[in-house]
Design a protein around this nucleic acid. Structure first.
Lengths: 114, 114
DNA sequence: GCAATACTAAAGTATTTGCTTGACTATCGA
DNA sequence: TCGATAGTCAAGCAAATACTTTAGTATTGC
């Protein structure tokens, strides 16, 4: 693996796991404690804690502990990083298709700059 | 790992690797052969071939071989799967914030239940 | 024909990942 | 105060990942 470890790496890596994506989806509905997140998942609480920590490390969620309960919430702005990359790609291939379309649309020397 | 292995899993997994993201970005500019893709990358051709195969398997790119040259192009529609998920998330947390805003916009300065 | 080119396939390896178990701490509620 | 609850920490482990090397097979150009 090359060394340009970016935010994007960590975000994609985090969301590549179905369990973690499920957590993000659940927190999209509203905040939850670690136990509440764990309840429907078929794994130990310890495993869920590790997923939660990873999601917090890459800023996809924030957490705060009061008493013995840690409450988790999504941090929507981090998904904007993803959206940004995706928008770049879309712009790129839309441009690519425009160019392709331009070539295909060229039945006579009439369009664009000659 | 749970068993709901989806397209989304594979797409996120594919894009979690910086090398593969770089390939997708390069192909966004235009089609390239495997060797052309490999040229700027600091790894063997064999390694690049493996990345290309993975990207093709999860439909992020298409390839076709003519003669001894395999030409690779992005397949933009696959990124729509990603966009779809992201849009769902955005809708979700926008709604969440609307609800939050509604609570905060409560007219009375008293914050307790009547 | 023959060598260089452009991959491809298989096997091996170091590291990372996604869990588990077990022991431990802190807090709440009766 | 005492036990149940909520989470944390550290090892350990099997499987997956991102490479490598080696040994091929088709094509192409001269």
């Amino acid at each position: 693996m090359l060394d340009h470890s970016t935010d994007l790496d960590n975000i994609f890596q985090a969301l590549a796991d179905p369990t973690r994506r499920a957590i993000v989806e659940q927190l999209g509905i509203g905040p939850k404690s670690v136990s509440e997140i764990a309840a429907p998942l078929d794994m130990t609480l310890a495993a869920v804690v590790q997923h939660v920590q990873l999601l917090e490390n890459c800023q996809l969620i924030t957490t705060q502990k009061q008493g013995r309960v840690r409450t988790c919430r999504i941090k929507p702005e981090t998904l904007k990083t993803l959206e940004g990359w995706l928008n770049q790609r879309r712009r790129q291939w839309e441009q690519h298709f425009d160019r392709l379309a331009a070539v295909l649309d060229e039945p006579s020397p009439k369009r664009k700059k000659p």
